[in-house]
Nucleic acid binder design. Structure first.
Lengths: 145, 145
DNA sequence: GTTATTGTAATTATTGACATTACAACAAAA
DNA sequence: TTTTGTTGTAATGTCAATAATTACAATAAC
């Protein structure tokens, strides 16, 4: 299975909020229009980002905003906020290896640290990219430089 | 979503084949016993590993074996063989960003290379671990050192 | 108060994972 | 050559996650 599109959606949402913050009120309907997903899905993602303190959402009056510098929000923050993997574990281990078998009894101990290393490598790379990078590259493309 | 347990299952299967190769005929039923998953699932995984040239399976007479040195089979080889992610793409991108929106039109171009970097970081780490590492650590635990 | 919007529940469709039953194809031993 | 054990594969079922959609109460500004 792939990592849920909630993640790329969330990044798209951040890019929109930043790009359009001065021109429009960036509502869930507006964001649904740009991402082409249902407004309710957008609101769920905004809810998760809000719970992580990464966005502010104006109830009633409407509109989302980003309450801190883009350089302080990494793709890892977003990845964690939208909870793409259960328990934060990238690999799904088969549930009940047979403990009566020498291999089944030890497979977890053998594999766990290695899988963790792989996961950390991925998360480290995610944490090295921030929304400021996204903003810069998006602006460059939009301005057609 | 997490990466399918087919991956950890496959590694478990390799460990079993190696550990028990001299004592038992390692059949799909035997492997099903150690992993605690259905023998048909084991056969499907063995089929994928066989297609990738990572195992040999004796039709009729039964039993699986590993046709090359453990040090030449990496976790990345296994990961690719069992096809845990579609198209080899770790991240599922939302399908139809609105091309009438400056952000929707450019989000792919902005994100693709960054996501690829993250994916490569993970795959590089996977490729640095081989079945020889698994064999060594498994043996150490089984022998109680 | 009217209006626009958010937060959330409920329902549905679709997809992948994994389990399970069943059986033909196959290979080796009796 | 029949018997036995095994593989490969199809068909079916269950379960969980994703995502779309409808509906509506709670909220905030005008």
């Amino acid at each position: 299975m792939q990592i849920s599109s909630r993640f790329t959606l969330a990044v798209h949402i951040f890019a929109c909020i930043d790009v359009f913050k001065d021109e429009y009120k960036v509502t869930s309907d507006f964001l649904a229009g740009s991402t082409n997903v249902n407004p309710v899905i957008v609101r769920k993602i905004l809810g998760q980002l809000k719970a992580a303190g990464l966005v502010e959402v104006a109830r009633g009056s409407g509109g989302a905003s980003i309450p801190k510098p883009l350089s302080e929000i990494s793709l890892l923050d977003i990845y964690n906020a939208v909870a793409c993997v259960e328990n934060g574990e990238l690999f799904h281990f088969h549930e009940n290896p047979n403990s009566d078998c020498p291999v089944g009894r030890n497979i977890h101990a053998v594999l766990d640290d290695k899988l963790m290393r792989v996961q950390k490598a991925m998360e480290t790379e995610l944490s090295s990219i921030t929304l400021e990078d996204i903003r810069r590259d998006t602006k460059e493309l939009i301005d057609g430089k």
